[in-house]
């Protein structure tokens, strides 16, 4: 019996008794109500206004973190330098979904050479003290393994120095690296580096890829974000600075990052994106998925929504 009714085509709404319903009046009232509510909420709560971080504010607030990061950019050991596509060719870099490596397949489409783009070019473009010119010449003349030895020795020495302070580093063979990074720090603190990373030889600019990648390689930005509860393991994607509601609708996407196997996987991003793609498709196709499409029948919430109708039928 109930099987037959379920199989039967849904009746035409026009076949049912009707009642007057003024759609345009309803719409107008809704529009006014939403506009008033919006105006009220905006007046009451305003909007988040946490200032962005610049290379200048970063290098002024934590110069030692800036210097440590600059050394890794120069030595090619920073996160960005070893990122792989789309920024650079790093052997073995790039996430995979099982055997499928879409990250590598997309290729290097936004090339970033951290030593050249973040350190050497900005130094060359700024007015150079003689000392810096000499350091640049020494760096360029040295073979790659020599450059690596300098930067890794200096990175280690900074790590051992109190607070990572370049002024307190033990003497050692760091080549021209300390001169280059201390000059870069001075440029950053003066605000010049923000402009230089953006310009790249053009006048009009909208692309913040380079300064953002540089900022992301340091710990200062991440520390600020953690303090605001925005880090990945804090469900950061759905949060907002201060006490503002954030993108609560990203809860499911954010959730996967908190649990295994994703939490500990090096392919977490790719796997979660693949999973979300499948779940999104399932969401769109709910009417066709057996079981899922029957949940409304089982939950019986519909009996409440249409209670007037069912009462009338009895």
């Amino acid at each position: 019996m109930s099987r037959r009714t379920r199989r039967a085509a849904e009746p035409d709404p026009a076949a049912f008794p009707t009642r007057p319903y003024d759609l345009l009046k309803e719409f107008t009232i809704a529009l006014v109500a939403v506009a008033v509510l919006t105006a009220g909420l905006a007046a009451l709560f305003s909007s988040p206004d946490e200032q962005p971080i610049t290379l200048a504010t970063w290098s002024a607030a934590t110069p030692n973190d800036f210097t440590a990061t600059a050394v890794t950019e120069l030595g090619g050991t920073s996160t960005t330098a070893q990122y792989g596509p789309p920024y650079n060719h790093t052997p073995g870099a790039g996430q995979k979904i099982g055997p499928v490596g879409l990250q590598r397949a997309a290729g290097v489409r936004i090339p970033v050479d951290t030593a050249e783009d973040f350190v050497l070019r900005p130094l060359r473009q700024a007015p150079e003290p003689a000392e810096v010119s000499a350091a640049l010449t020494a760096w360029t003349a040295a073979p790659a393994d020599r450059q690596q030895a300098w930067t890794s020795a200096y990175s280690d020495a900074l790590g051992k120095a109190p607070d990572g302070d370049p002024a307190k580093v033990e003497p050692g063979d760091y080549g021209p690296v300390p001169v280059l990074t201390s000059r870069l720090l001075a440029l950053a603190q003066a605000g010049a580096l923000d402009g230089q990373l953006l310009a790249q030889g053009r006048f009009y600019q909208t692309d913040y890829t380079r300064p953002m990648l540089f900022l992301n390689d340091g710990t200062y930005l991440a520390d600020q974000a953690r303090a605001q509860h925005l880090a990945g393991d804090q469900w950061g994607m759905m949060n907002e600075t201060g006490n503002y509601p954030g993108q609560a609708w990203l809860w499911l996407y954010t959730f996967w990052y908190q649990i295994d196997p994703f939490k500990t996987s090096k392919n977490a991003d790719a796997l979660i994106w693949a999973l979300m793609a499948v779940l999104s498709l399932a969401f769109v196709l709910v009417p066709f998925i057996p079981g899922v499409r029957s949940i409304p029948r089982w939950t019986k919430v519909y009996r409440l929504i249409w209670r007037q109708h069912y009462r009338g039928q009895r």
Partner: peptide, 11 residues
Amino acid sequence: APVDLNHPGHY
């Protein structure tokens, strides 16, 4: 804004 939500958030 009369209600300033820019204080450190509660979690």
